[in-house]
Design a protein around this nucleic acid. Structure first.
Length: 287
DNA sequence: ATGGCCGTTTGAAACGGA
């Protein structure tokens, strides 16, 4: 079993007391973090030792104060790419994506721009950024999982009350269309396909007891290509991590894949027929 | 009751978040 998780931690500095116990409890093999809000050197100084001692390699794309993404992996970490080629900035590039190949799967940790107000400059930036992300994913034929905070609720079923969001970002047709276009390159919404009709949220406003009333949105997604999606054994939101003291306002999303037979976490590759064992050649041990 | 919280830089209060 291979466990992939994504979590918008809303400041990794503030979340250290929650992040490390969570890693020990859930033992994810690959972790995509968003909103680390920390430069790479500061991240390394804060957590480098604690992550390496737990067996994780780290790919960082951070900046001071805002944004910031990371991938932690103990399934391999190769071909690290910071950012999305051709993605716009606001006005300068922001640290919103990092990707790497982990055990044969191309993993993205993305923090999609918020959009702020429909039709604002920031909203146009959000849509253009998603277009660039789609192009990058489409250009690669690799088995891929795009994890992160998309700042889009895919449908009205993904918000506690559609009427509460009228006129707001995250639910507008253009944002949903951009997400549909992204999925159109061959990505499945793993959690929604696993729980087609259930009430599933990943974000709850800190205010007004929204979490305890379960008034949230599902905006943190795991999008996987077909070969990966077909290996999903479990997919769930770790609400436990949203409870208690000093939580992020987002909960982690956790996806378990069955193991590939070659020990990689990547797609199942059939063995060459020349080396395939002859039928009937293997005898089970006798009792 | 149309706000409520949290994190950032700062050194009181604005801004961003969703």
């Amino acid at each position: 079993m291979v466990r992939i998780a994504t979590w918008n931690v809303n400041s990794v500095k503030q979340r250290v007391p929650r992040l490390l116990p969570w890693l020990d409890e859930r033992k994810p093999d690959v972790v995509c973090l968003q909103e680390t809000k920390l430069g790479n050197d500061a991240f390394e100084g804060l957590l480098g030792k604690d992550l390496r001692s737990r067996g994780y390699e780290v790919a960082l794309h951070g900046e001071a104060q805002w944004n910031g993404v990371a991938i932690l992996s103990r399934a391999g970490l190769e071909e690290v790419c910071q950012g999305v080629p051709g993605a716009p900035g606001f006005p300068n590039p922001e640290a919103r994506a990092v990707s790497a190949t982990c055990g044969g799967i191309r993993i993205y940790s993305v923090y999609v721009p918020n959009g702020r107000v429909p039709d604002s400059d920031h909203y146009q930036y959000k849509l253009a950024w998603l277009t660039a992300l789609r192009a990058a994913v489409a250009a690669s034929g690799a088995a891929t999982v795009v994890c992160g905070d998309f700042n889009i609720a895919p449908t009205d079923e993904d918000v506690f009350d559609p009427l509460a969001y009228v006129g707001q970002t995250h639910v507008t047709p253009a944002e949903r269309a951009a997400l549909t276009e992204l999925k159109g390159v061959g990505l499945h919404d793993v959690v929604r396909e696993h729980w087609p009709t259930q009430r599933v949220f990943t974000y709850w406003d800190y205010r007004a007891g929204m979490f305890h009333k379960d008034l949230g949105m599902r905006i943190d997604l795991v999008l996987a290509t077909e070969g990966v999606n077909s290996r999903v054994q479990a997919a769930w939101v770790d609400r436990q991590a949203r409870k208690g003291t000093l939580p992020s306002d987002h909960a982690p999303v956790i996806v378990d894949l069955d193991e590939a037979p070659d020990g990689n976490i990547g797609p199942v590759v059939p063995p060459p027929s020349a080396t395939a064992p002859k039928r009937g050649a293997f005898k089970l041990p006798q009792a």
